[in-house]
Simulated scan of single mutants.
Amino acid sequence: MIKNFKKINYLKNGNQRQKLAFYEINKHQVLETLKQYSPILVGTIPIDIDIPNSDLDIICECKNHSQFTKYIRNEFGNKKDFKIYTTKKNGVDCTIAEFKTDNFIFEIFGQNIPTDKQNAYRHMIVEDLLLSKKGNDFKNKIKELKTSGIKTEPAFAKLLGLTGNPYVELLKFEHKLSK
C-alpha cells in the first residue's frame, strides 16, 4: 500500500532522525513557506534509508523559474551557505536551492511538473514499496551500499539485479508494485 508522503506528520512517529527532520522543517517553516509550490519531502529520510550526511530534499512545482528563484532567494537567502541555480535534468529545466540549518542541509528542487509526477517522488514511492516487500535485510543492504558511496537508485538496482539506467529501470516497478 502506498503511504501518504504529501504531509510530513508521519515523521513525528519515526526514528530519531525523522523526528529531528520534522522539527527542523517546522522550525524553519519550509513547507509552509513553499506551500504555493505544492512541496513534498522526498528522498531517503522519509523512507528510513538515510545515512548521516543525507539531506532533506523538497520538491516543488514551479511554472516560472525566475519568479521561483526570486521567491526562494527572498525567503531562504539569509540561511547558512545558501546557493541557488537553474540547470537542466533529463532535458527539463530545474531550479535547485541549498542551505544549511543546525541539523540538516536542505535542497529545494523546482520543476514545471506536478510534484507527485516528478521522478524523485515516483522513485521514493517505488523504493518504499520495495522496502516493505523485501524486509529488513534488504533495507540494511541498501544502507550499507549507500554508506559505501553508492547513490540510492543504483543501490536498489544493484540488489535487484537491474541492468541499464537505474533511474529508468526502477520506474518500471511503479505499476507492478502499486497493485
Score class of each variant (00 low, 15 high):
54 S>A: 12
81 D>Y: 12
31 L>P: 01
154 P>H: 07
44 T>G: 09
121 Y>Q: 03
112 N>C: 07
144 E>L: 10
19 K>V: 09
29 Q>E: 12
57 D>Y: 06
18 Q>R: 03
112 N>F: 04
82 F>S: 06
131 L>H: 08
91 G>Q: 04
70 K>L: 13
39 P>E: 13
41 L>T: 04
97 A>H: 01
68 F>A: 14
50 D>I: 00
29 Q>V: 12
116 D>C: 07
19 K>H: 07
140 N>E: 15
131 L>E: 06
29 Q>I: 13
70 K>G: 08
154 P>M: 11
142 I>E: 12
137 D>E: 13
66 S>E: 15
101 T>Y: 00
92 V>S: 12
144 E>V: 01
103 N>E: 07
150 I>H: 01
49 I>D: 01
102 D>V: 10
41 L>I: 09
130 L>P: 01
97 A>C: 12
109 F>H: 05
22 F>C: 01
79 K>L: 05
73 R>G: 11
153 E>W: 05
48 D>L: 06
149 G>K: 05
80 K>S: 13
72 I>P: 00
21 A>R: 02
142 I>Y: 09
76 F>E: 00
78 N>W: 13
84 I>R: 05
109 F>A: 03
125 I>G: 01
69 T>I: 13
59 I>L: 10
62 C>T: 14
18 Q>I: 05
22 F>W: 00
49 I>Y: 02
141 K>V: 07
23 Y>E: 12
96 I>P: 00
23 Y>G: 05
87 T>R: 14
130 L>N: 04
126 V>R: 03
136 N>D: 15
124 M>A: 03
151 K>E: 15
41 L>E: 06
43 G>V: 02
66 S>K: 14
83 K>P: 08
24 E>N: 10
41 L>R: 04
53 N>P: 04
94 C>S: 11
63 K>D: 12
62 C>R: 04
99 F>N: 01
32 E>H: 15
68 F>V: 12
154 P>Y: 08
112 N>A: 09
22 F>R: 00
106 F>Y: 14
79 K>D: 01
122 R>C: 10
85 Y>M: 13
140 N>T: 01
149 G>N: 07
92 V>E: 14
144 E>Q: 10
46 P>R: 08
72 I>K: 03
46 P>F: 08
38 S>K: 08
63 K>P: 05
57 D>S: 10
125 I>N: 01
58 I>K: 07
